[in-house]
Write a protein that binds this DNA or RNA. Structure first.
Length: 816
RNA sequence: GCCGGAGUGGUGGAAUGGUAGACACGCACGACUCAAAAUCGUGUCUCGCAAGGGGUGAGGGUUCAAGUCCCUCCUCCGGCACCA
């Protein structure tokens, strides 16, 4: 019997964290990688190491991957569970501006702080593989990939107006704009024409969409991506005009073609210039365009905003279906950068066209009849049956779409996804590795000269001019053109923060490689990421960019698989006790350090996993922590009652042979627990896994003798959740080595169900009585025993039920 | 508006169509204690003394049997949104 010992989490946790660090038991050895070997790559979305430090919500995902990682390691998998830092971006830059020091200094501080906070939780990261996106050795390969994209024609310069945040003084990608506001600072975004680098992510739209099917991702996330990519199939129809210029329109409702009463062109459309002198009211048109451009995107895209437009006097378009002449408008409700930037307006069957037609008193022509007549309705937007559509009248909408497209247009697919605006006019990002030469134009920096290291500057302030602060360092900017050796200037735009995070998982496989982005053998072994955990807010940003980046790397032969993350799970947020997001602003932040100090890391871990379903948002309650702490203490005290069973040394996996001394119900419960904990970790049902262990422990409290093998198995099951306490107990019981490399328990599948079962007797579906029986009892015997039960005898004696349903080993339902 | 997800005790939450409320917090009572804390035990959906009845956001339906499946709603949360 083991010696009496109190559970002192402070001592134990510190001790083991130190030992694990020196013994490197969590180091992922990649000297020998054999394809086909059991491997498991489990990944957290790497954090931005913010100066504010962690609150208890942050580590929830890390704890979950840690549990999975530990369980997989115990099960004999070669596990890769790394951590790193996504450290480019605004917070470090703001730190730099405030302190007039290089952002690297701020990053170093926050990384150190972050790492310390993470490490006291006892996570099993292999810190030898730590990466940092701001390390030139790392971003060399971010730049390298950009050059490859440039070579492939995927990266291009554009002067189109883009989203501009006047507060951050930088251009933004579509993905960085939320509700017309800058995702970072909340300032309304403006449109600004600016030279910028753009990446043709739209070329991958189809693959990004189609490959979603095979991914084991939460359906809502897949949906969010489908939504974002926004594929729609429709028809492109060309309207000839009297100005000698054709107007192509995109529509998903070509079945309404005969109902067109006017055409609308976006104010930003090039068509307006092309119409030239055909437009008779040039002055008003110019005025209108100017006014529209002043309005911010939020105002302009507000759904219930009245639609403003202006007729282009003198311009007439011809409807190809009936050769009818219709007027052409410009209006702010038509977007230049979707479809063709022009629409055919069918006010009778489109909400927006209807509103516009009403406002400007334009004709409304009905060409679709609902299958069931709706009295008095002037607007009908659903599919129906065509009328007033020459030979197509009488067809249903869907039939007509095919036929009309064939006759008057062509089938096209459009996406809502826009190309990725890749330039930022800020300092703290990867320099875009190109040189502008007056003779040769854009010249890529030769691969051998990578990385283009971010130089030190005096001022980190964004200039607001459309150039980054880098533009002021003439010694850095002015270089020889690599091609003609003439004078050249470096690109001063930097990359968005999303760049470095688009491929970081690959670097973990081979973090120190200076010759390649990743060694192909290592990539082949570890890819894909088996399990990826992070916040749902990345659905349409990081997770799209990373998938795109990965597919590009696949195309150029760097990686073999088409998708980076096989299985994805979202962490549910932890809210403050007041139900609001944890934030300094609300004063509801709970710090993990204090919880670890008071209750221990193991308790914190158990609590976060026990709180509720992993992917669900949940409110933090410090009061409730005591429950899991009590559980841990019960497990701890139990070690004093452990009795050596003779065979325990011999057997590793199968526990049942050693469980002599347990009565049948306890032995069954024991095996059920092994099964449930194993299954539940696999499906991320951490809360139910823990509750099952609690049930077992509650039962073992009532048992006199606890066989050592049973106890050791319990310790193993608990080890992924509470690594420190279990490691200490493992040692106290005289076991060699670490519990974390001791093998995962197996259950005896013959001992999962009790010999005796309780059968419920239902009458008309309501439980009225019950009886005990041996497992495997025949249906006939069950029915007989049910009819013999007291309730039936008392209430239905002598009556024959009209129907009897027998569910083997469970229920007899008698219908009277 | 469109697309998702969710509504179960005082609380967090369990429940392959088959005993609703596991497990935990809290609360009440009891044991231990001079006492308290800790620990252990018992109870704890609701109406009812009981027998019994009712009960998973509302209302319908399918079924021998519905928290679970179907329909119509309501509420909350998330994503997208003048995307033609």
């Amino acid at each position: 019997m083991a010696k009496k010992q109190v559970y002192d989490h402070r001592k134990i946790e510190k001790k083991w964290q130190k030992k694990w660090e020196t013994s490197k038991i969590y180091k992922t050895d990649d000297k020998t990688l054999k394809l086909g070997q059991k491997k498991f790559f489990v990944l957290d979305m790497f954090p931005y190491p913010s100066g504010e430090g962690l609150h208890v919500g942050h580590p929830k995902g890390y704890i979950a991957t840690d549990v999975v990682s530990r369980m997989k390691r115990m099960s004999g998998f070669k596990v890769l569970h790394p951590m790193g830092w996504d450290a480019f971006g605004l917070p470090a830059e703001q730190f730099a501006i405030k302190n007039k020091t290089n952002p690297m200094i701020g990053v170093k501080k926050t990384v150190a702080r972050f790492k310390k906070q993470v490490s006291i939780i006892g996570l099993d990261y292999d810190w030898d593989r730590e990466i940092n996106t701001t390390d030139p050795k790392y971003y060399k390969w971010t730049q390298w990939t950009f050059l490859k994209m440039l070579e492939a024609g995927l990266a291009y310069e554009s002067h189109e107006p883009i989203n501009w945040c006047p507060s951050c003084k930088t251009g933004l990608a579509n993905e960085d704009v939320e509700d017309g506001k800058c995702e970072r600072c909340g300032t309304p975004v403006e449109k600004k024409p600016l030279r910028q680098w753009v990446i043709k992510i739209t070329k991958y739209a189809d693959r990004l969409l189609n490959d979603l099917e095979a991914l084991e991702w939460p359906e809502p996330i897949k949906d969010a991506q489908r939504n974002w990519i926004g594929r729609s199939e429709g028809a492109e129809v060309t309207f000839k005009t009297n100005a000698g210029v054709d107007v192509s329109v995109f529509t998903t409702r070509v079945d309404t073609l005969f109902g067109v009463t006017y055409v609308v062109v976006a104010p930003e459309s090039k068509l307006i210039a092309e119409f030239g002198n055909s437009i008779k009211n040039q002055k008003e048109v110019a005025e209108f365009i100017k006014n529209t451009s002043k309005i911010s995107d939020i105002e302009r895209t507000a759904v219930d905003k009245p639609k403003n437009g202006l007729k282009l006097e003198g311009v007439i378009a011809i409807n190809p279906s009936n050769n009818e002449e219709v007027p052409v408008f410009i209006a702010d409700y038509v977007l230049a950068n979707y479809g063709t930037g022009a629409v055919m307006a069918v006010p009778a069957h489109d909400t927006r066209d209807y509103a516009f037609a009403k406002k400007y008193d334009l004709p409304i022509r009905e060409v679709i009849r609902p299958e069931v007549e709706i009295a008095g309705a002037e607007l009908f937007v659903d599919d129906g049956v065509l009328i007033n559509s020459s030979k197509f009248s009488g067809l249903t909408s869907s039939e007509a779409r095919g036929k009309i497209t064939k006759t008057y247009g062509k089938l096209v697919t459009k996406y809502k996804l826009r190309d990725w605006v890749f330039s930022r006019q800020r300092y703290w990002g990867e320099p875009i590795p190109v040189i502008h030469c007056t003779e040769c134009g854009v010249v890529p920096v030769p691969y051998k000269d990578l990385p283009v290291v971010l130089p030190k500057v005096k001022s980190y302030e964004p200039t607001g001019t459309g150039e980054s602060p880098l533009a002021n360092i003439s010694s850095w900017v002015n270089v020889k053109c690599p091609k003609c050796k003439g004078p050249g200037k470096r690109e001063t735009n930097t990359m968005p923060q999303w760049a470095g995070s688009s491929w970081y998982y690959l670097r973990y496989m081979d973090p120190k490689n200076d010759k390649a982005l990743v060694d192909p053998k290592k990539e082949a072994f570890w890819s894909p990421v088996d399990f990826y955990v992070g916040g749902a807010e990345h659905a349409a940003r990081h997770l799209i960019y990373a998938r795109f980046w990965h597919k590009f790397l696949q195309d150029i032969g760097v990686v073999k698989y088409g998708e980076p993350f096989k299985k994805l799970q979202n962490v549910g947020l932890i809210m403050g006790e007041d139900g609001r997001k944890m934030s300094k602003r609300y004063g509801n932040v709970v710090n993990p350090d204090t919880i670890v100090e008071t209750y221990g890391a193991d308790t914190l871990r158990l609590y976060e996993m026990f709180m509720g379903p992993f992917d669900q948002e949940i409110t933090w309650k410090t009061d409730n922590i005591i429950g899991v702490r009590r559980f841990l203490e019960r497990v701890w005290r139990m070690h004093e009652r452990v009795v050596d069973d003779k065979k325990s040394k011999a057997k590793k996996g199968v526990a049942t042979k050693d469980t002599v001394g347990l009565d049948n119900p306890t032995e069954i419960l024991f095996n059920q627990t092994i099964k449930k904990v194993t299954d539940d970790i696999g499906t991320l049902g951490f809360n139910t896994a823990i509750s099952q262990m609690m049930i077992l422990v509650n039962q073992l409290e009532k048992v006199e003798i606890i066989p050592k093998s049973v106890y050791l198995t319990l310790i193993k099951l608990l080890a992924p959740f509470a690594p420190h306490a279990t490691e200490e107990l493992w040692m106290l019981l005289g076991q060699k080595g670490s519990v974390h490399t001791s093998g995962w328990p197996e259950y005896d599948s013959d001992k999962l169900v009790l010999n005796t079962i309780t059968v419920m007797v239902q009458v008309n579906g309501r439980v009225r009585d019950q009886f005990n029986a041996e497992i495997g009892i025949s249906k006939e015997d069950m029915e007989k025993l049910a009819l013999d039960s007291k309730y039936i005898q008392d209430n239905f004696a002598g009556k024959t039920p009209t129907r009897v349903i027998v569910v083997p080993n469970k229920i007899v339902n008698l219908v009277y």
